[in-house]
Every structure is written in C-alpha cells, then in structure tokens.
C-alpha cells in the first residue's frame, strides 16, 4: 500500500512534467496538422531563458519569490518571439505540402535552435534551484517531496483546463474548430485563417516554452537536453491521440505511471516501457486513445 502511494505520487509528478512538455505539440498538430519537431527546441529555449532571467534577478539582489515571475516572463518572451517567426517565415510557405516536408522543415529548425542555444548561452550547465527549494517539503508515506512538484501538478491541471475551455468555451475556440474542420469554408465566411494559424502556433510555442520554464528549476539546462523531451512528447501524444488535449493528459498519465512502476518494480525496463506502451496502443488503436479517425478523401 505504501509502495503504491509512492508509485502514484511519483507517476503523477512525472505525468505533470510530461503533460507540460507535450501539450503544445498536440495543440499545434490539432490546428495546423503539423508535427512540430522544433517543439523541443522551443522548449529548451524557454528553459534557458527562464533560468537566465531568474539568475539575473537573483544576482541583482531581488527577492527569490520574484524568480517565479521570471519563469513566466521567460516563457512569454520565447513564445512570443519564436512562435510568430517560425510560423510566418517558414511554416506559412509549406502549408498543404506533404507531411514529410513539414517534418523535415521543423527538424531543420530544431537543429538550428539547438546550436543557437549554445551560441547564446554557452555549453556550461546553467540552473536556478531557488524556485524549487523555496516552497519547502512535505512527506507522503514517509518519503519527502518538494512542494514545487505539487505546484507542477496543479499548474498542469489548471493550464490544461484553461486550454480546453479556450477551445470549447470561447469564440476564439469555435473559430479554431471551424478552421480545423474546413479551412476554405472558414475563409469564405470571413475568418482570417492566417491569423488563426499564427495565433495557434504562437500559443503552442508558448506552451512549449512554459513547459521548459517550469521544469527548468528542477533540472540543469545543458546543450542537447531538448532531444530527449522531443521524443518523449512524441510518445505521449501518439498514445493519447494526436491533436487531442485530453489525449495528451491521459498519455502523460499512462507514461508517467508506467515509468514510476518500472523504476520501483522493474528498473531494467525503465528505458523500453514507454515505447512498448506506444506500440501497444498504436497497434490496438492506431489513432491513439482520443484520436479521431481521419476520413479518406477521394
């Protein structure tokens, strides 16, 4: 029972991290039908920027509580800068192209972003741990956890909820759904489709950067750490169903719990369990748990 509690807790913490990593990816896929490989690069940029700002403000002698604000600021800056640039300059030219074109275009952007990080911030690991330690610790089943881990869980739930509300309950969301369903008709009834694309992609980029910024205090940011996040996010949204917000949440929970189970009961399987889950789900339900079957058009 105690072990089960620990596994649940660890699994949920990891699920929160995974959700933050992957929600932007599924959002962009849902609206633009693009699997954005550069997502991981934006995520890393968010983490670097947030860490950089937090270190700067601590260096200036400000209250450590301000670092939380800096994390958010880092995410907003990176999201607002990278999103529109990537969408307007690059993606806009290739809408309607084959899937492989979009995959490779975003892969190239990923390569460029990865090296840009090094040029800007160097190769030494950077980290800021104050946001992580400031809130203190608590114990579950005799095992201490950091409150920041709970913050991550809460933020994931609230953020995920807000996104679902934005898509289902607002005018903007209804327009987005209309664009997803039929781009040409939407344009015909006066929707500025280009603007919707830019806004959606920027929102996705912001999600990626926010994920990076919030996870940054628990890790050290080093060159190359975006790579891992990219593949993990792929796995999560493939399991949950690409383009589905609920799917990303469920995928994150499944992967998070499976990995916690593996660590505690079968450490040898830690590496393969995620891909095994992905294969199983895709074999049984190719479109993912929450995915929609695409119509084959004649």
């Amino acid at each position: 029972m105690r072990l089960l509690t620990i596994i649940l807790m660890d699994g949920t913490v990891f699920a929160a991290v995974l959700f933050l990593i992957s929600v932007g990816l599924t959002l962009v896929f849902g609206v633009l039908r693009i699997l954005n490989v550069s997502h991981g690069g934006i995520y890393a940029f968010g983490a670097y920027m947030a860490t950089y700002l937090a270190i700067k403000i601590l260096g200036a002698g400000a209250s450590p509580y301000l670092t939380y604000l800096m994390l958010l600021a880092g995410a907003i800056i990176i999201g607002m800068v990278t999103g529109p640039i990537i969408e307007r300059v690059f993606l806009r030219r290739i809408y309607g192209s084959d899937q492989h074109i979009t995959l490779l275009l975003t892969f190239s952007i990923f390569l460029i972003l990865d090296d840009l990080l090094k040029l800007i911030w160097g190769t030494k690991p950077m980290f800021v741990s104050q946001p992580y330690t400031l809130l203190g610790e608590f114990s579950i089943a005799g095992i201490p956890y950091s409150w920041y881990q709970v913050v991550l869980i809460v933020v994931s739930i609230v953020f995920g909820g807000a996104l679902v509300w934005a898509v289902r309950g607002t005018r903007f969301g209804k327009i987005v759904v209309s664009v997803i369903n039929d781009r040409e008709i939407s344009q015909a009834i006066g929707i500025n489709v280009n603007r919707i694309y830019t806004v959606s992609f920027t929102l996705g980029a912001f999600c990626a950067a926010l994920g990076g910024a919030l996870i940054a205090p628990t890790i050290s940011v080093t060159p190359g750490f975006a790579l891992d996040a990219t593949v993990l996010a792929f796995a999560v949204i493939a399991i949950g169903g690409m383009g589905s917000l609920e799917g990303a949440a469920l995928g994150a929970l499944i992967v998070g719990l499976l990995r916690a189970l593996a660590v505690h009961l079968l450490p040898e399987a830690d590496l393969v369990v995620i891909y095994l889950a992905m294969i199983l789900v895709l074999v049984v339900r190719p479109e993912g748990l929450f995915g929609q079957v695409e119509l084959r058009r004649i």
Partner: peptide, 18 residues
C-alpha cells in the same frame, strides 16, 4: 538505471529514500 542524462529523477529518488 536511469535514462542517459534524464531530466526527471523523482521516482528514482523516492526509491532510494524508501
């Protein structure tokens, strides 16, 4: 056994604590 340069050690740390 963790992944190469994994970013998230929460479960591993719990196991070591236990």
């Amino acid at each position: 056994w963790t992944k190469f340069q994994a970013g998230e050690y929460s479960a591993e740390i719990s196991k070591l604590l236990a």
